[in-house]
């Protein structure tokens, strides 16, 4: 069973190798001309105008939280879809109950306006 993970291992090695290779090669080969303006942090070529560690809007957090909840719903849908033909009508009813409960949640979120950006 563990042999099936050999492609995953190759993938990890390739990804890690690419990342470290890029850093090592640019450090070795890239020209290094350091002056004060260049070493400052900048965003899209513009010098920073405020402290980067400022507070973020709560809306980001709500969206992320709701994303995770519906992400987990999708996680349950995936194994269900794999054996859907074997489960038949029973499986359909079962998943419809599950989805219906979460649709209630989605309707609640929508009605409360949590998806609106303030």
């Amino acid at each position: 069973m563990l042999n099936q993970y050999i492609p995953v291992l190759f993938m990890i090695v390739a990804a890690a190798g690419t990342a470290t290779g890029m850093i090592i090669l640019t450090t070795l080969l890239g020209p290094k001309k350091e002056f004060s303006d260049k070493m400052e942090p900048f965003e899209c070529g513009v010098s920073p105008v405020s402290d980067p560690a400022s507070r973020f809007s709560l809306s980001f957090y709500v969206i992320a939280m709701l994303f995770i909840v519906f992400d987990i719903e999708a996680v349950f849908l995936f194994p269900w879809a794999v054996i859907y033909t074997k489960l038949g009508v029973f499986g359909l009813v079962e998943m419809m109950v599950f989805v219906l409960v979460l649709v209630v949640g989605l309707a609640y979120v929508w009605k409360k306006g949590a998806l609106e950006w303030e």
Partner: peptide
């Protein structure tokens, strides 16, 4: 989806509670 159908359905209620909690808190 056969042996653990009840915990699976209860999980949907748990997720619903998480949704409502997130909205109410924010």
């Amino acid at each position: 989806f056969t042996d653990f159908i009840l915990p699976f359905e209860i999980a949907s209620v748990l997720l619903l509670v998480a949704i409502i909690g997130a909205v109410i808190l924010s």
